[in-house]
C-alpha cells in the first residue's frame, strides 16, 4: 500500500519537475541538434544516432538526478516526516528508483520515437522497421540506465556530501553501467545475457542501498 502510494507520489513529483521537463524536451532536441551539427555521420539514421546518445548520456543524467535528489532530501531531513508514519524505509528508496527510472525511460523512448519519425519524414525510412532495428540498442540503453539509476540510489544513501556523490556517480556509476556491454563487445555474450547482468547488478545495488538505509541514522 505505502509503496504504491509513494511511487505514485514520486512519479507525480518527477514528471512535472523542471529537470524532467528539460529531459523530455531536451533529450530529443539535443539528439537532433547534434545530428545537424555533425557534418559527417557516415549515413547513420537520426534514430540510431539518438539511441547512441541516449545510451551514453541517459545513464549519467539518471544517476546524477537521483543522487542529487536523495542527498538533498537527506540533508534537509525530508524523510523524517515520512518515517514517523507506518511505512517501510525500503519503500522510500524503491519508490524513488521506480519513479526516476520510469521517467527517464519514457524520455529516452520519446527521443528515439521522435527521431524515428524524423527519419521517416526526412529520409523516407519506415518508422516501425527503424524502431525494430533499434530494439537491441534500446534494450542495452535501458539496461545501462537501470544500473546507473540503482548506483545513484546507493551513492545517494552512502555519500555525505553533494560533491562526493556527484563525482562518485559520474565515474563509478557510469563505469559500472558499461559492464553490461562487455559480454557483447567481447563477443562472448548475447543480448539476453546483458539484460540479465543488468538486472542482477541493479538488484544487488538496490539491495545494498536498502540494507544501509535501514540502519542509517538520518
Amino acid at each position: 500500500m505505502s509503496l504504491k502510494l509513494l511511487f505514485m507520489d514520486e512519479l507525480n513529483g518527477f514528471y512535472r519537475s523542471k529537470v524532467m521537463i528539460a529531459l523530455w524536451v531536451g533529450l530529443p532536441a539535443m539528439a537532433l541538434v547534434l545530428y545537424l551539427l555533425v557534418s559527417d555521420t557516415g549515413g547513420i539514421p537520426i534514430s540510431q544516432f539518438t539511441a547512441l546518445l541516449v545510451s551514453s548520456i541517459g545513464g549519467v543524467l539518471t544517476s546524477a538526478m537521483i543522487v542529487v535528489t536523495i542527498l538533498n532530501e537527506r540533508e534537509r531531513k525530508v524523510y523524517d516526516l515520512f518515517l514517523v508514519r507506518p511505512i517501510k524505509r525500503r519503500d522510500l528508496l524503491l519508490a524513488k528508483f521506480g519513479a526516476v527510472y520510469l521517467c527517464v525511460v519514457v524520455a529516452a523512448l520519446l527521443a528515439i520515437l521522435l527521431s524515428a519519425l524524423l527519419d521517416a519524414f526526412l529520409n523516407g525510412y519506415d518508422v516501425l522497421a527503424t524502431i525494430g532495428a533499434l530494439g537491441d540498442s534500446v534494450l542495452i540503453a535501458l539496461s545501462m540506465m537501470a544500473i546507473s539509476c540503482s548506483a545513484g540510489v546507493l551513492i545517494g544513501v552512502l555519500a555525505n556530501s553533494m560533491l562526493v556523490g556527484i563525482l562518485l556517480v559520474l565515474y563509478g556509476g557510469n563505469q559500472l553501467s558499461s559492464l553490461v556491454i562487455l559480454p557483447i563487445l567481447l563477443g562472448t555474450g548475447e543480448l539476453w545475457m546483458a539484460v540479465l547482468l543488468a538486472i542482477a547488478i541493479s538488484s544487488g545495488l538496490l539491495l545494498g542501498s536498502i540494507v544501509i538505509f535501514e540502519r542509517k541514522e538520518l
Binding site: 512535472r16 532530501e73 534537509r76 531531513k77 525530508v78 523524517d80 516526516l81 514517523v84
Partner: peptide, 13 residues
Amino acid sequence: IGYLPQNTSMQEW
C-alpha cells in the same frame, strides 16, 4: 504519535 521537527522540511515541488 505526531511529530514536528525543529525545521520542517518537505519536498519543494
